[in-house]
Amino acid sequence: MKALVIIKGREAAAKLCSAARKNADEVVLVVIGDTPLPGAVADKTLHIALPTGSVYDDAADTIKAIYDAETPDFVYLEATRSLKVITGKLAAHANTSAIVDVLELADDVASNRYFGGIGQRSLKATGAKIYTISVSDLPDGAASGTDLVEEASWVAPEKPLELVETRPIEKSGTDLFKAETVISVGRGFAEEAQLELAYALRDKLGAGLGCTRPLTEGVDWLPRDIYIGVTGLQLAPTTYIAIGISGQMQHMVGCNRATTLLAINKDKNAPIFKQCDVGLIGDIKEVLPALIEAL
């Protein structure tokens, strides 16, 4: 069996290649652009140099050519936004659809989440086997291989995107994976100023602060890299305190591995109360000042 592995970040190379190695005796790795080349993790590494002014996505035509030349039995792509575009183009090229965000894969049966984690499906590709896998869903693995690197020749897309500007996204610098206690805020916070109450509670508890996805989109109250859930961070802290969060599955997938889950919500029928260890029915405005006082 032959695997083609396509990655964006360096961390993904070893993880995806060692996962691929379990099912393949030959692993070919594709690295795009200026990602530092990983050590010996595959039997061969193909490097695609990105022409100046090109976006990652536009390596798709080169990757299609590599796919045709290598004829792999299956393809793993790191689940990032750019590589998902490449995934779609490659799957279209192979007249099929990719199975995305795979959690487990054995004997050609892949599982992934359905409706944000309400369900989990077992899926099988009937045509070409193309999967995306998120690095955070893979264990560390010891990959093996050679240092052989070949330069792939660039296949120019017919209708390229013109890259006008690139700006790095400022990261919040908080590592919620390290926090034993995480407090998390949701749309129950009616205005940005009310977050001061959450900051005060965070400081009192020495906790990390996370949030639901809506607080990072449309409104810019909190940085995107601290939102928790199926499309964000998936944490397993000792203590998780959800404040003004309804408890939709898309969010709960990111916190339901907490040892103890506590919730504050003014609606006694909020779904989160069915998924917590201890819940307090009350308004943020009254509860948080009293709680900070009591701790």
Binding site: N95, T96, G119, Q120, R121, L123, K124, A128
Partner: peptide
Amino acid sequence: GIEVLDCRA
């Protein structure tokens, strides 16, 4: 191109 074998919570 994707066969659904099972779906469960």
